[in-house]
């Protein structure tokens, strides 16, 4: 049936020029659509700082617990001399250290993470704070949380048999409350 029909169709049913013209129009239309999407990305990327993490910093995974930025006493939330907030996490099989960090609401916070073992993921649920933690490299992410509350922070990259049990929390508190916390209270969220 199909073959018979095919033989009935004469070549040149539609003129070559018409085919070329319609195709060219479609090509232009699609190029414009893609161009517009790209423009939105450039605009939001530049205008709203919505760009992916960018700095390439390495760190020796075998010695990071002995010296440098990621020794245990330096983990958690820190207020830098200039008043800015930095949160440092160590992601290791199958836990984050510390298991919870307090940050002030509506404030730009810098997160710095690395791993002494395998690749992990840093993901604050229901937000677009999402990055890979690759051993040997430092993940550096800026984020601002406007809604106070507890956010679950699951490891979102496969890291071994205990992967699904690996999660921490980010506790966002109002700015005034954060100021009143003692330095040791800022480091973790306490025993919970």
């Amino acid at each position: 049936m199909a073959e018979q029909l095919n033989n009935q169709i004469a070549s040149g049913l539609i003129q070559e020029e018409i085919i070329e013209r319609t195709e060219r129009r479609w090509l232009y239309a699609m190029a414009i659509v893609l161009g517009l999407m790209l423009a939105v990305i450039v605009f939001t990327g530049v205008g709203q700082m919505m760009s992916p993490l960018s700095d390439v910093e390495t760190i020796n995974p075998a010695t990071l617990h002995l010296k440098g930025e990621f020794v245990e006493s330096n983990l958690g939330t820190a207020v830098e001399p200039d008043g800015s907030i930095t949160v440092r996490f160590l992601a290791e099989q199958y836990t984050f250290v510390p298991p919870c960090a307090v940050v002030p609401a509506s404030t730009l916070v810098r997160f710095r993470l690395t791993s002494p073992d395998v690749t992990h993921g840093f993901f604050v649920s229901t937000t677009n704070v999402n990055a890979m933690v690759v051993p040997g490299y430092i993940t550096n992410v800026m984020a601002r949380f406007n809604r106070p509350g507890d956010y679950v922070m699951p490891c979102d990259e496969y890291c071994g048999f205990g992967h699904h049990a690996m999660a921490a929390r980010v506790r966002v508190v109002p700015q005034g409350q954060f100021k009143n916390l003692q330095p040791e209270q800022r480091i973790t969220c306490g025993a919970q």
Partner: peptide, 20 residues
């Protein structure tokens, strides 16, 4: 690798454009 720490955003952008 957009969310990876081992590359800068410049080449991430190049790959994003080529993906379009």
């Amino acid at each position: 690798l957009f969310m990876d720490p081992e590359h800068g955003s410049g080449f991430k952008f190049v790959h994003s454009v080529l993906t379009f």
